[in-house]
């Protein structure tokens, strides 16, 4: 299952249909990696938009957004098929009402850093990248979130906060959403994410037992 999950293509149409039914607008973009083989061997391709997608986003000329969500296939489309839509629902249900979030961007053959470029073009103050994690033998469908404040193509991994292991046997949607919104609010307060931003969200959370209910 783990080996198969690596090569399973993201069903963009099905995901768009589900998200649209949740009342969300979607945009589909592609990285410079043209297929799975080039995706696996050229991480630099997966981190950048291809020419057509870059132009497509630039031409949208959208208003700035507070909190952009990008969904990337990463190494497990299975994780996205199973968890992206309910997780986005959980995030939106608790995010501050005054935050604007614009459309959900779906990126294929994507690595984490492609969200920085997408967010920079779309003028987003923060971006949360929901991406399929590397599949493990008994965990082929794990989803991770990477949060970046003031995202731009010069960002590196030290600028991000990560929430990992979102799946049935791991972190639940509601616990992951709570953690993400807590981190995002803190990031907005200190105007930074990554190593500067320390997760103390468990101080304000109700019993830790909540984390173990699963999704």
């Amino acid at each position: 299952m783990a080996r198969d999950a690596v090569h399973l293509a993201l069903d963009v149409h099905a995901l768009e249909t589900t998200l649209n039914a949740q009342g969300l607008r979607t945009i589909h973009v592609c990285s410079k990696a043209t297929d799975r083989a080039s995706y696996l061997l050229r991480p630099d391709f997966g981190r950048r938009l291809n020419e057509a997608s870059r132009l497509q986003l630039q031409q949208l000329n959208t208003a700035p957004v507070d909190f952009l969500i990008v969904v990337g296939d990463g190494l497990s489309s299975l994780a996205i098929h199973r968890h992206a839509a309910p997780l986005i629902e959980a995030i939106h249900s608790i995010q501050p009402e005054h935050w604007s979030f614009g459309s959900i961007v779906i990126a294929t053959q994507a690595r984490v850093a492609i969200a920085d470029e997408i967010a920079e073009i779309l003028n987003a103050r923060m971006v949360a990248m929901l991406i399929g994690e590397r599949p493990g033998l008994s965990s082929p469908d794990s989803l991770g979130i990477y949060l970046t404040f003031n995202p731009n193509i010069r960002c590196n991994d030290a600028d991000r906060n990560c929430i990992s292991n979102i799946r049935a046997e791991g972190l639940s949607y509601s616990a992951a959403a709570k953690k993400l919104i807590w981190l995002a609010q803190e990031a907005a307060r200190i105007q930074a994410s990554g190593v500067m931003l320390k997760d103390e969200s468990d101080h304000i959370e109700l019993p830790v037992v909540n984390l173990e209910l699963g999704g």
């Binding site: 906060n161 990560c162 990992s164 292991n165 791991g170 972190l171 953690k179 320390k198 997760d199 103390e200 969200s201 468990d202 101080h203 830790v208």
Partner: peptide, 8 residues
């Protein structure tokens, strides 16, 4: 750890 949360 899966978390970066200091209390955890």
């Amino acid at each position: 750890p899966a978390t970066d949360s200091l209390p955890a």
